[in-house]
């Protein structure tokens, strides 16, 4: 399988641009924290805190900017924003090719919403031999796809990867240009809907813990505004408490679905595929351990993948990309 370097080139370009730009907007304390988020259900959940004015209540000024996923990482690498919602694997890619970051908050793990969708006739990953798959090269869905091949002991060399922006994957699948796509909700769901008879042939539920969805912060901003970032973490756990209360489900769905312009009915199944982590559930994940049950272990596995498949060249110090202290402090305060 040949991996083109276009994703990396884009990041190199962003890095060059960052050098030009960093002189312009300084990370002043008075400035609101600029956070980029995109259409992944675990991040759309921030919308609840935004709509309910909880950031103001907590006394922290934030500015959420809505991006396409890869564009959000480009914007982060270009120094335009202070934090970006990424998967733990993509944080490493962005770090190796653009700009490093520190994960301070785990929103969720992907539990089925990231998926490889095969068109009718493609019943499993094995059926993809000699065929084409559309996915965003070097990023999370690529990782998922490779993991699927590995788990099913499939040699991927005969499968052609067509670099496709994730939000275009439904149209690309329905156009017949590819035989499968890899995407996350709501894009994967749109693809399933668009192509009658298509089905998920491998999902993140088959490899839980491979993809953690995290808030990654610019190390410089974290150092300067640690208290403000802690408040952001606090708001997140308020959002989690709200989401986990069944009585709020209709209201929550209304807010979440309207952000991505679909109906609440269509949105509801996404909640199962994105496992939002409660305070109790997230603590063991922040503990250092091998394997996918810990974000440390998961990041090491992503790192090895990225090196093996030449997304970047050298292994990274993955521990540097994680800082559980803010979450743990907030959770300790909540328990009091």
């Amino acid at each position: 399988m040949k991996i083109q370097k276009s994703g990396i080139l884009r990041h190199l370009l962003a890095l060059v641009a960052a050098g030009v730009v960093t002189t312009a907007p300084g990370g002043l304390n008075a400035e609101p924290l600029k956070i980029a988020y995109s259409d992944w259900p675990g991040w759309v959940a921030w919308e609840i805190g935004i709509k309910k004015d909880w950031f103001k209540e907590e006394g922290v000024e934030v500015e959420f900017a809505w991006y396409d996923y890869v564009a959000s990482m480009d914007a982060y690498a270009a120094g335009q924003i202070d934090a970006v919602s990424m998967t733990n694997g993509d944080a490493l890619v962005t770090g190796a090719t653009g700009k490093p970051s520190v994960g301070i908050l785990i929103n969720d793990y992907s539990n089925g919403n990231d998926m490889v969708v095969g068109k009718p006739g493609v019943e499993s990953l094995k059926d993809l031999a000699g065929k084409k798959i559309g996915l965003e090269e070097g990023f999370v869905t690529h990782l998922l796809f490779l993991k699927g091949l590995e788990m099913n002991k499939i040699d991927g060399s005969s499968i052609t990867i067509v670099n496709t922006p994730t939000n275009e994957t439904p149209q690309v699948l329905s156009s017949g240009a590819v035989d499968a796509i890899a995407a996350w909700q709501p894009n994967s769901g749109e693809a399933l809907k668009l192509v009658s008879g298509s089905k998920p042939i491998f999902t993140s539920a088959d490899a839980p813990g491979l993809i953690y969805d995290v808030l990654y912060v610019d190390p410089e901003s974290l150092e300067k505004n640690r208290d403000a970032w802690k408040k952001v973490v606090k708001v997140w756990y308020k959002i989690v408490a709200f989401l986990k209360d069944e009585d709020n489900l209709d209201e929550a769905l209304e807010i979440l679905a309207s952000r991505v312009s679909i109906s609440p009915e269509e949105y509801e199944p996404f909640l199962a595929g994105t496992y939002i982590l409660t305070p109790e559930e997230v603590k063991p994940i922040w503990e250092k351990a091998d394997g996918l049950g810990s974000i440390y272990g998961s990041s090491v596995i992503s790192d090895e993948f990225n090196v093996k498949y030449e997304v970047y060249e050298k292994p990274l110090d993955t521990e540097k990309y994680l800082d559980p202290s803010l979450t743990l402090e907030v959770l300790a305060e909540m328990e009091k």
Partner: peptide, 24 residues
């Protein structure tokens, strides 16, 4: 709506499905 258990894809009123897929 065509909302099935264990299938993440919900077809809501107003959605279109092909005449071949509808019976499924």
């Amino acid at each position: 709506s065509a909302d099935r258990e264990d299938v993440a894809t919900v077809y809501i009123a107003g959605d279109r499905v092909s005449k071949g897929f509808f019976p499924q």
